[in-house]
């Protein structure tokens, strides 16, 4: 029955081929809205991103519960205390979960295929969202087999850094 569906690869929408609503003589009207924003990063995220530019991953520690969170936070989500102690984290960690992205959509940050992972850096008390890469991603079955053997990853830095999250290019298996 799969042939009853048409998958538009660019839009990734599922349409039933042999079902349509009563055909319309009615029109649609195209309007786009594009709005600029300028997000304030504040002292904590400014320092976090400046750290990435230097090739360092910073977290902050809560003085009450002692947890180290990354990306660095101004305050602890649980205790609501200021997190003023800066900690440079190891650039290696364990994969908590991952998925291979194999479809395209508007506003996507990277050309698929790519792997998104939750990576728990050593010493950190939470996981960080980032790419996992450094090997061939074109065949999902090979990716699956490869990922079965991977538990530890290490940050690979971008050649050009702009003090943003993409200064880390991806995490590669160690």
């Amino acid at each position: 029955m799969a042939e009853r569906y048409k998958v538009d690869k660019d839009l990734v929408r599922m349409e039933i081929v042999d079902f349509t609503f009563p055909q319309k003589e009615y029109k649609t009207s195209r309007h786009d809205t594009v709005l600029p924003y300028n997000w304030a990063l504040g002292p904590t995220w400014t320092k976090f991103f400046d750290g990435l530019k230097e090739g360092k991953i910073f977290g902050t520690r809560c003085k009450k519960c002692n947890k180290i969170l990354v990306p660095a936070r101004t305050f602890c989500p649980s205790c609501y205390e200021d997190m003023e102690e800066w900690v440079e984290l190891p650039q290696e960690g364990s994969i908590e979960t991952w998925c291979l992205v194999n479809y395209k959509y508007y506003g996507q940050v990277k050309e698929p295929p790519y792997i998104i992972g939750q990576i728990r850096l050593d010493k950190a008390d939470c996981s960080l969202t980032h790419f996992i890469g450094g090997f061939d991603l074109s065949d999902p079955d090979k990716v699956r087999k490869k990922m079965k053997t991977v538990s530890r990853v290490k940050a690979v830095w971008s050649k050009e850094k702009h003090a943003d999250i993409y200064d880390i290019a991806y995490f590669k298996p160690v």
Binding site: C99, Y105, I165
Partner: peptide, 17 residues
């Protein structure tokens, strides 16, 4: 937000993870 967790955007990504 577009500068820290944006990589996870798109529903299938978050829920597959």
């Amino acid at each position: 937000e577009p500068f820290l967790m944006v990589t996870i955007g798109g529903a299938p990504v978050a829920f597959s993870l």
